[in-house]
Amino acid sequence: MSVIARKKRRSVLLTIAGVRETGISIFILLLVVVVSLRSPYFLTVSNIKDVLMDIAILSIVAIGEAMVIITRGIDLSVASTLALAGMAVGMTISSHPEIPPGGALLMGMGIGAVLGSVNGLLVTKGHIPPIITTLGTMSIYRGLVFAISGGAWVDADEMTKEFIGMTKGEILFIPNLVFMAGIVAIISYYFLNHTSTGRQIYALGSNPTAARVAGIHVHRNLFLAYLISGILCGMGGVLWISRYASAQSDTAVGFELQAIAAAVVGGVSTLGGSGTIPGVLLGSLLLGIVVNALSLVHISPFWKLAVQGLIILAAVVTDALLSRRLQQSRSAEGTS
Protein backbone atom coordinates (compact mmCIF):
# COMPACT_ATOMS: atom_id res chain seq x y z
CA MET A 1 0.00 0.00 0.00
CA SER A 2 0.93 3.65 -0.09
CA VAL A 3 2.20 3.45 3.45
CA ILE A 4 5.01 1.19 2.32
CA ALA A 5 5.93 3.39 -0.62
CA ARG A 6 6.13 6.43 1.63
CA LYS A 7 8.19 4.55 4.11
CA LYS A 8 10.75 3.61 1.47
CA ARG A 9 11.05 7.12 0.18
CA ARG A 10 11.65 8.58 3.60
CA SER A 11 13.76 5.82 5.00
CA VAL A 12 17.19 7.19 4.03
CA LEU A 13 16.48 10.52 5.64
CA LEU A 14 15.01 8.80 8.65
CA THR A 15 18.01 6.57 9.08
CA ILE A 16 20.36 9.54 9.18
CA ALA A 17 17.99 11.47 11.39
CA GLY A 18 17.42 8.49 13.61
CA VAL A 19 21.06 7.98 14.42
CA ARG A 20 21.54 9.38 17.88
CA GLU A 21 25.02 10.72 17.08
CA THR A 22 23.99 13.09 14.30
CA GLY A 23 23.76 16.14 16.53
CA ILE A 24 27.16 15.80 18.12
CA SER A 25 28.82 14.90 14.80
CA ILE A 26 27.54 18.13 13.30
CA PHE A 27 28.79 20.06 16.28
CA ILE A 28 32.24 18.49 16.02
CA LEU A 29 32.41 19.30 12.30
CA LEU A 30 31.52 22.92 12.99
CA LEU A 31 34.13 23.11 15.70
CA VAL A 32 36.78 21.64 13.39
CA VAL A 33 35.96 24.16 10.65
CA VAL A 34 36.07 27.10 13.03
CA VAL A 35 39.32 26.06 14.70
CA SER A 36 41.10 25.19 11.45
CA LEU A 37 40.28 28.67 10.14
CA ARG A 38 41.92 30.19 13.18
CA SER A 39 44.90 27.85 13.28
CA PRO A 40 46.44 26.21 10.20
CA TYR A 41 48.35 23.80 12.43
CA PHE A 42 45.12 22.22 13.69
CA LEU A 43 44.50 19.93 10.73
CA THR A 44 48.07 18.68 10.31
CA VAL A 45 48.76 14.96 10.59
CA SER A 46 50.91 15.34 13.66
CA ASN A 47 48.30 17.40 15.52
CA ILE A 48 45.53 14.99 14.63
CA LYS A 49 47.70 12.16 15.93
CA ASP A 50 48.25 14.14 19.13
CA VAL A 51 44.55 14.62 19.66
CA LEU A 52 43.85 10.95 19.05
CA MET A 53 46.64 9.87 21.40
CA ASP A 54 45.26 12.20 24.04
CA ILE A 55 41.76 10.79 23.86
CA ALA A 56 42.69 7.11 23.51
CA ILE A 57 42.91 6.41 27.24
CA LEU A 58 39.93 8.67 27.93
CA SER A 59 37.76 6.74 25.49
CA ILE A 60 38.79 3.36 26.95
CA VAL A 61 37.76 4.50 30.42
CA ALA A 62 34.67 6.31 29.12
CA ILE A 63 33.45 3.12 27.42
CA GLY A 64 33.49 1.31 30.77
CA GLU A 65 31.83 4.28 32.40
CA ALA A 66 29.18 4.28 29.70
CA MET A 67 28.29 0.65 30.35
CA VAL A 68 27.75 1.41 34.01
CA ILE A 69 25.68 4.50 33.22
CA ILE A 70 23.55 2.47 30.80
CA THR A 71 22.57 0.26 33.76
CA ARG A 72 21.34 3.42 35.56
CA GLY A 73 24.46 3.47 37.70
CA ILE A 74 27.56 5.62 37.82
CA ASP A 75 31.19 4.81 38.51
CA LEU A 76 33.01 7.62 40.29
CA SER A 77 35.95 5.37 41.11
CA VAL A 78 37.33 5.06 37.56
CA ALA A 79 40.20 7.52 38.01
CA SER A 80 41.23 6.01 41.35
CA THR A 81 41.02 2.50 39.89
CA LEU A 82 43.18 3.63 37.00
CA ALA A 83 45.72 5.21 39.33
CA LEU A 84 45.84 2.26 41.70
CA ALA A 85 46.29 -0.28 38.90
CA GLY A 86 48.90 1.97 37.30
CA MET A 87 50.85 2.42 40.51
CA ALA A 88 50.73 -1.28 41.42
CA VAL A 89 51.89 -2.28 37.95
CA GLY A 90 54.55 0.48 37.89
CA MET A 91 56.03 -0.64 41.20
CA THR A 92 55.99 -4.29 40.09
CA ILE A 93 57.79 -3.68 36.82
CA SER A 94 60.37 -1.45 38.46
CA SER A 95 61.38 -4.36 40.69
CA HIS A 96 60.75 -7.02 38.03
CA PRO A 97 61.93 -5.52 34.74
CA GLU A 98 61.68 -8.96 33.10
CA ILE A 99 57.87 -8.69 32.91
CA PRO A 100 56.93 -8.02 29.28
CA PRO A 101 54.59 -5.10 28.41
CA GLY A 102 51.78 -7.53 27.57
CA GLY A 103 52.13 -9.13 30.98
CA ALA A 104 51.97 -5.73 32.64
CA LEU A 105 48.85 -4.92 30.70
CA LEU A 106 47.18 -8.17 31.81
CA MET A 107 48.23 -7.53 35.38
CA GLY A 108 46.67 -4.08 35.29
CA MET A 109 43.44 -5.48 33.91
CA GLY A 110 43.43 -8.14 36.62
CA ILE A 111 43.79 -5.53 39.35
CA GLY A 112 41.07 -3.48 37.69
CA ALA A 113 38.83 -6.55 37.63
CA VAL A 114 39.22 -7.02 41.37
CA LEU A 115 38.52 -3.35 42.10
CA GLY A 116 35.52 -3.35 39.75
CA SER A 117 34.17 -6.52 41.39
CA VAL A 118 34.23 -4.81 44.76
CA ASN A 119 32.04 -2.04 43.32
CA GLY A 120 29.79 -4.61 41.68
CA LEU A 121 29.35 -6.64 44.85
CA LEU A 122 28.59 -3.58 46.97
CA VAL A 123 25.97 -2.43 44.48
CA THR A 124 24.28 -5.81 43.91
CA LYS A 125 24.72 -7.80 47.12
CA GLY A 126 25.05 -4.79 49.40
CA HIS A 127 22.21 -2.84 47.78
CA ILE A 128 24.21 0.36 48.18
CA PRO A 129 23.36 3.02 45.58
CA PRO A 130 26.08 3.18 42.89
CA ILE A 131 26.88 6.83 43.55
CA ILE A 132 27.54 6.14 47.24
CA THR A 133 29.42 2.91 46.59
CA THR A 134 31.79 4.41 44.07
CA LEU A 135 32.15 7.65 46.00
CA GLY A 136 33.46 5.50 48.83
CA THR A 137 35.71 3.30 46.72
CA MET A 138 36.97 6.37 44.87
CA SER A 139 38.55 7.56 48.12
CA ILE A 140 39.59 4.09 49.25
CA TYR A 141 41.37 3.27 45.99
CA ARG A 142 43.05 6.66 45.86
CA GLY A 143 44.08 6.21 49.47
CA LEU A 144 45.59 2.84 48.61
CA VAL A 145 47.67 4.48 45.87
CA PHE A 146 49.31 6.67 48.52
CA ALA A 147 49.56 3.77 50.95
CA ILE A 148 51.37 1.36 48.65
CA SER A 149 53.66 3.97 47.12
CA GLY A 150 54.32 5.92 50.28
CA GLY A 151 53.88 9.02 48.14
CA ALA A 152 56.85 8.10 45.94
CA TRP A 153 56.88 8.13 42.12
CA VAL A 154 57.80 5.41 39.71
CA ASP A 155 60.02 7.19 37.17
CA ALA A 156 60.86 6.61 33.54
CA ASP A 157 64.29 5.22 34.42
CA GLU A 158 62.60 2.50 36.48
CA MET A 159 60.67 1.30 33.43
CA THR A 160 61.97 -0.77 30.53
CA LYS A 161 62.24 0.67 27.02
CA GLU A 162 59.75 -1.92 25.79
CA PHE A 163 57.23 -0.88 28.39
CA ILE A 164 57.43 2.80 27.53
CA GLY A 165 57.59 1.93 23.84
CA MET A 166 54.30 0.04 24.07
CA THR A 167 52.34 3.25 23.70
CA LYS A 168 54.81 5.07 21.46
CA GLY A 169 54.97 2.81 18.43
CA GLU A 170 52.77 2.79 15.36
CA ILE A 171 51.03 0.09 13.38
CA LEU A 172 50.27 1.09 9.79
CA PHE A 173 50.75 4.78 10.69
CA ILE A 174 48.24 4.41 13.50
CA PRO A 175 49.68 5.04 16.96
CA ASN A 176 49.58 1.89 19.10
CA LEU A 177 47.52 3.61 21.73
CA VAL A 178 44.85 4.59 19.23
CA PHE A 179 44.97 1.08 17.85
CA MET A 180 44.30 -0.39 21.28
CA ALA A 181 41.45 2.01 21.98
CA GLY A 182 40.01 0.99 18.62
CA ILE A 183 40.13 -2.69 19.55
CA VAL A 184 38.43 -1.98 22.88
CA ALA A 185 35.76 0.03 21.08
CA ILE A 186 35.11 -2.68 18.51
CA ILE A 187 34.86 -5.44 21.12
CA SER A 188 32.59 -3.29 23.29
CA TYR A 189 30.42 -2.39 20.33
CA TYR A 190 30.08 -6.06 19.46
CA PHE A 191 29.34 -6.91 23.09
CA LEU A 192 26.67 -4.27 23.60
CA ASN A 193 24.92 -4.57 20.28
CA HIS A 194 25.30 -8.12 19.16
CA THR A 195 25.27 -10.34 22.24
CA SER A 196 22.37 -11.28 24.46
CA THR A 197 24.19 -9.96 27.52
CA GLY A 198 24.57 -6.55 25.88
CA ARG A 199 20.90 -6.48 25.00
CA GLN A 200 20.02 -7.43 28.56
CA ILE A 201 22.15 -4.59 29.90
CA TYR A 202 20.18 -2.09 27.84
CA ALA A 203 16.90 -3.72 28.89
CA LEU A 204 17.63 -3.61 32.60
CA GLY A 205 18.89 -0.05 32.42
CA SER A 206 15.77 1.01 30.63
CA ASN A 207 13.25 -0.83 32.81
CA PRO A 208 14.61 -3.03 35.60
CA THR A 209 11.19 -4.38 36.57
CA ALA A 210 10.23 -5.42 33.08
CA ALA A 211 13.69 -6.91 32.60
CA ARG A 212 13.32 -9.04 35.68
CA VAL A 213 9.84 -10.16 34.64
CA ALA A 214 11.35 -11.15 31.29
CA GLY A 215 13.63 -13.57 33.11
CA ILE A 216 16.79 -11.47 33.11
CA HIS A 217 19.17 -11.85 36.04
CA VAL A 218 19.43 -8.16 36.83
CA HIS A 219 22.15 -8.42 39.48
CA ARG A 220 24.39 -10.64 37.41
CA ASN A 221 24.38 -8.14 34.56
CA LEU A 222 24.82 -5.16 36.87
CA PHE A 223 27.86 -6.80 38.41
CA LEU A 224 29.25 -7.44 34.96
CA ALA A 225 29.04 -3.75 34.06
CA TYR A 226 31.12 -2.73 37.08
CA LEU A 227 33.55 -5.56 36.40
CA ILE A 228 34.07 -4.42 32.81
CA SER A 229 34.49 -0.82 33.92
CA GLY A 230 37.17 -1.95 36.38
CA ILE A 231 39.02 -4.00 33.76
CA LEU A 232 39.07 -1.12 31.29
CA CYS A 233 40.31 1.26 34.01
CA GLY A 234 43.08 -1.18 34.88
CA MET A 235 44.07 -1.30 31.22
CA GLY A 236 43.90 2.49 31.09
CA GLY A 237 46.14 2.70 34.14
CA VAL A 238 48.95 0.67 32.57
CA LEU A 239 48.69 2.60 29.30
CA TRP A 240 48.75 5.85 31.24
CA ILE A 241 52.00 5.15 33.09
CA SER A 242 53.55 3.89 29.86
CA ARG A 243 52.53 6.97 27.91
CA TYR A 244 53.59 9.50 30.52
CA ALA A 245 56.46 7.28 31.70
CA SER A 246 55.66 7.83 35.34
CA ALA A 247 53.30 6.54 38.00
CA GLN A 248 52.34 9.10 40.60
CA SER A 249 50.06 9.25 43.57
CA ASP A 250 47.96 11.95 41.95
CA THR A 251 47.78 10.29 38.56
CA ALA A 252 44.51 11.10 36.78
CA VAL A 253 42.96 13.04 39.65
CA GLY A 254 39.62 14.33 38.38
CA PHE A 255 39.72 12.06 35.36
CA GLU A 256 36.39 10.43 36.37
CA LEU A 257 34.64 13.69 35.55
CA GLN A 258 36.14 13.69 32.06
CA ALA A 259 35.05 10.09 31.56
CA ILE A 260 31.51 10.87 32.68
CA ALA A 261 31.49 14.00 30.51
CA ALA A 262 32.67 12.05 27.46
CA ALA A 263 29.92 9.48 27.96
CA VAL A 264 27.17 11.99 28.61
CA VAL A 265 28.22 14.36 25.83
CA GLY A 266 28.23 11.31 23.59
CA GLY A 267 24.56 10.71 24.28
CA VAL A 268 24.63 8.19 27.11
CA SER A 269 21.54 8.95 29.17
CA THR A 270 22.07 9.25 32.91
CA LEU A 271 18.56 7.81 33.27
CA GLY A 272 19.91 4.54 31.91
CA GLY A 273 19.03 2.34 28.99
CA SER A 274 20.50 4.34 26.15
CA GLY A 275 23.87 5.23 24.77
CA THR A 276 26.20 3.85 22.10
CA ILE A 277 29.89 3.17 21.68
CA PRO A 278 30.21 5.46 18.61
CA GLY A 279 28.57 8.14 20.75
CA VAL A 280 31.10 7.69 23.54
CA LEU A 281 33.96 7.88 21.02
CA LEU A 282 32.53 11.10 19.60
CA GLY A 283 32.12 12.46 23.11
CA SER A 284 35.77 11.71 23.87
CA LEU A 285 36.78 13.22 20.55
CA LEU A 286 34.88 16.41 21.28
CA LEU A 287 36.55 16.74 24.66
CA GLY A 288 39.96 16.11 23.09
CA ILE A 289 39.42 18.63 20.30
CA VAL A 290 38.26 21.30 22.71
CA VAL A 291 41.33 20.95 24.92
CA ASN A 292 43.65 20.86 21.91
CA ALA A 293 41.97 23.75 20.13
CA LEU A 294 41.99 26.00 23.16
CA SER A 295 45.76 25.75 23.40
CA LEU A 296 46.13 26.38 19.67
CA VAL A 297 43.95 29.47 19.36
CA HIS A 298 45.72 31.23 22.22
CA ILE A 299 42.94 31.65 24.67
CA SER A 300 44.17 32.98 27.97
CA PRO A 301 44.97 30.04 30.23
CA PHE A 302 42.88 31.69 32.91
CA TRP A 303 39.82 31.32 30.70
CA LYS A 304 40.55 27.86 29.36
CA LEU A 305 38.59 25.83 31.86
CA ALA A 306 35.52 28.05 31.69
CA VAL A 307 35.52 28.08 27.89
CA GLN A 308 35.97 24.34 27.85
CA GLY A 309 32.90 23.88 30.03
CA LEU A 310 30.96 26.33 27.91
CA ILE A 311 31.69 24.44 24.70
CA ILE A 312 30.71 21.13 26.28
CA LEU A 313 27.41 22.60 27.44
CA ALA A 314 26.82 24.09 24.01
CA ALA A 315 27.38 20.67 22.46
CA VAL A 316 24.92 18.98 24.78
CA VAL A 317 22.28 21.66 24.26
CA THR A 318 22.66 21.53 20.46
CA ASP A 319 22.39 17.79 20.57
CA ALA A 320 19.32 17.84 22.80
CA LEU A 321 17.54 20.41 20.63
CA LEU A 322 18.39 18.56 17.44
CA SER A 323 17.39 15.15 18.68
CA ARG A 324 14.13 16.49 20.08
CA ARG A 325 13.32 17.91 16.66
CA LEU A 326 14.21 14.68 14.95
CA GLN A 327 12.25 12.61 17.40
CA GLN A 328 9.19 14.73 16.78
CA SER A 329 9.37 14.28 13.03
CA ARG A 330 10.10 10.61 13.55
CA SER A 331 7.14 9.98 15.80
CA ALA A 332 4.92 11.93 13.43
CA GLU A 333 6.17 9.51 10.80
CA GLY A 334 5.47 6.52 13.02
CA THR A 335 1.82 7.33 13.58
CA SER A 336 1.02 8.03 9.96
Binding site: Y202, A203, S206, N207, T209, A210, V213, S274
Partner: peptide
Protein backbone atom coordinates in the same frame (compact mmCIF):
# COMPACT_ATOMS: atom_id res chain seq x y z
CA UNK B 1 4.28 -0.03 30.31
CA UNK B 2 5.89 -0.73 33.65
CA UNK B 3 6.31 -4.49 33.63
CA UNK B 4 5.68 -5.65 30.11
CA UNK B 5 7.70 -3.55 27.72
CA UNK B 6 11.04 -1.89 27.31
CA UNK B 7 9.53 1.24 25.80
CA UNK B 8 12.66 2.65 24.12
CA UNK B 9 13.36 -0.67 22.40
Amino acid sequence: QQHGLILPM
